[in-house]
Amino acid sequence: MEREDSINVLGEPLAPCSADPLTGFFRDGYCNTCAADQGSHTVCAVMTDEFLAFSKYLGNDLSTPRPEFGFSGLRAGDLWCLCAARFLQAHDEGCAPRVNLGATHKRALDIVPLDVLRAHAG
C-alpha cells in the first residue's frame, strides 16, 4: 500500500486532520490515501450531530463505540477523514459538515468539486 503524495486540495503539504480521535485510512492522523483506499477517506471534516445521524441512517454508524476495533465513537466537534462520496452525498442532502481544506487530500477532488469543498470550509 504505497501512499500517494501528501498534498491537500490547495496544492500545499497536507496538514494533520486529527490525532484524537486518530483518523485516516492509515490511522496516522492524516487524510492520506492509496490505491487500496476504495472509499477515498480524504475529506477532513468536523463532525456534527446532524451529519452523524445522516451517516448512521445510511448504514455507517460513526457515533457508536466499537471497542473491539479500538473505536470510541465520534461526537460533534470531532475531526474525521470522511469518504469523499459520502461527503458529497451529505452536501447534496443539505447536511454536509464543515471541512478543513488544509487537511483534505487532493484526491478528494476526483469526487468532490473544489467549489463544493470551499463552500463548507470552516
Rank of each mutant, 00 (worst) to 15 (best):
D5M: 15
D5L: 15
S6T: 01
I7C: 02
I7F: 02
I7V: 14
N8V: 07
N8Y: 03
N8T: 05
G11F: 03
G11W: 04
P13V: 13
P13N: 14
L14Y: 04
L14T: 03
C17G: 03
A19D: 11
D20A: 11
D20M: 03
P21D: 15
L22M: 07
G24R: 08
D28P: 06
Y30H: 08
Y30N: 04
C31I: 07
N32M: 04
N32W: 00
N32V: 05
T33Y: 13
C34I: 02
C34T: 12
A36K: 08
A36P: 00
H41I: 00
H41F: 10
A45T: 12
V46A: 03
M47G: 09
M47T: 08
M47P: 02
M47E: 14
D49K: 14
E50A: 15
E50S: 06
F51C: 11
L52A: 13
A53M: 06
A53H: 01
K56L: 11
K56N: 10
K56F: 12
Y57I: 08
Y57W: 09
L58R: 03
G59K: 04
G59C: 13
N60Q: 13
D61T: 09
S63T: 14
S63E: 07
T64S: 13
P65V: 09
P67L: 12
E68M: 05
E68L: 06
E68F: 00
F71H: 11
G73P: 06
G73W: 12
R75D: 03
A76N: 13
A76T: 11
G77W: 04
D78Q: 10
D78C: 01
D78R: 00
L79K: 04
C81M: 05
L82S: 13
C83A: 13
C83H: 03
C83E: 08
A85C: 11
A85G: 08
A85D: 11
R86N: 14
F87Y: 08
L88E: 11
Q89N: 08
Q89W: 04
A90D: 02
A90V: 05
D92M: 14
A96N: 04
P97L: 09
V99D: 14
V99A: 14
V99G: 08
V99E: 13
N100K: 15
N100T: 15
N100D: 13
L101V: 07
L101M: 10
L101D: 02
G102T: 10
G102S: 11
G102A: 10
A103D: 12
H105E: 05
K106I: 12
K106L: 07
R107Q: 11
R107D: 01
D110F: 00
D110Y: 00
D110Q: 12
D110I: 00
I111P: 03
L114P: 10
D115C: 09
D115A: 14
V116E: 10
V116I: 15
A119C: 04
H120G: 02
A121F: 01
G122T: 08
